[in-house]
Simulated assay, not measured.
Amino acid sequence: MTPPDRLRALLAEPGFIVMPAVWDGLSAKLAAGAGFKTAFLSGSCVAASRLGGPDLDLISFGEMFDSFAMVRNAAPDTLVLADGDHGYGNAMNVQRTVRAYGRAGAAAILIEDKITPRELTAAGKPCLPRAEARMKIRAAVEAAKESGILVMARTDCRPTQGIDEAVARIEAFVAEGADLLFLDSPADETEMRRAVAAAAGRPSFIVLSPGAPRATPTRDEAAALGFRIGTYPTALLSPVVGGMKAGLAALAAGEAEAPGALPPAELRATLGYPDYDAEARRFIATSG
């Protein structure tokens, strides 16, 4: 089965799907090793790891696609939802983005309706007119037919244009054939219920990490509201940043490592040194 087919089969099963947010080979390998079948290649995490900065439309298609290759190579069985952002341009750019990820083995891709480049502020996400946003999703669905990759249609318009417009967009995206739907920044339970209803039986996605100005239900609450998939964009990234800060503080204090550092043997095992040796033995030349 192809990755999209495997994701479709997983979505047909009961239960809520947790997609850890990953950004490189190590984060993907650890998520797979922890038993997660899916992962979200998060634009915010890639921006943090590659740029050391915020997710404000500064990451390019090439950088995201390179990060996807890292994830795919380190965890080839993981079903990856690729963050296609705004498609990196107009509807034709969207098609190129969708085809590239589909050919490379992504199970699904997210396409959103915000305007790019964004205004020179970190606040708010002005969005395209609804008709133009709809054409982007139409282009994505058409391009997805080549590989079967699932299209997740996201609207960011709720904070700037209201929940009625956001719901209307979800309904339009469903009409265009989007496989998965995503309302960003719902304000409360009522808005979340409206978004799920607008998806008309197609799976709805939600962000579950706390901190941003949005309603953040628990996993059980999200499932009860009808959501099928959720991601935690900061669940891996925040502890990683915290661990690095602790390690640097330990070095600055004259210590060799932070108290929470892995023992050397565990670190080597996690990185795969014993696996490499076991595999390499098959290729050691013998005399004669």
Results as ranks from 00 to 15, higher is better:
G62F: 03
V94P: 13
S60F: 05
G89V: 08
S60C: 07
A69S: 14
N93K: 09
N73R: 15
A82S: 11
V98S: 13
V71W: 08
D66Q: 15
N93S: 10
F61I: 01
V71C: 14
R96L: 14
H86T: 15
N93M: 09
G87P: 07
Y101M: 07
D66A: 15
R96P: 07
F61W: 06
G102D: 01
D77M: 02
N93T: 09
A74F: 08
R96K: 13
E63R: 09
N90P: 13
P76W: 00
V71S: 07
M64T: 09
G84P: 05
G87Y: 13
N73V: 11
A100W: 04
D85L: 06
P76T: 00
E63H: 09
V98G: 11
N73F: 03
L81Y: 06
V80N: 10
S67H: 15
S67M: 05
Y101K: 05
A74W: 08
F68H: 01
V80D: 10
F68E: 00
R96V: 12
P76Q: 01
P76L: 01
F65I: 02
A91S: 11
P76I: 02
G89S: 03
A82F: 10
M70Q: 12
R96C: 03
F65A: 11
A91G: 04
Y88C: 01
D66P: 04
D83I: 02
N73K: 15
G89R: 03
H86R: 13
V98Y: 12
D85G: 09
G87K: 06
T97C: 12
R99L: 00
M92D: 09
M92Y: 15
M70V: 00
R72Q: 10
L79N: 01
G102Y: 00
S67E: 07
N90H: 13
V94H: 12
T78W: 07
M92S: 12
S60D: 01
P76D: 00
V94S: 12
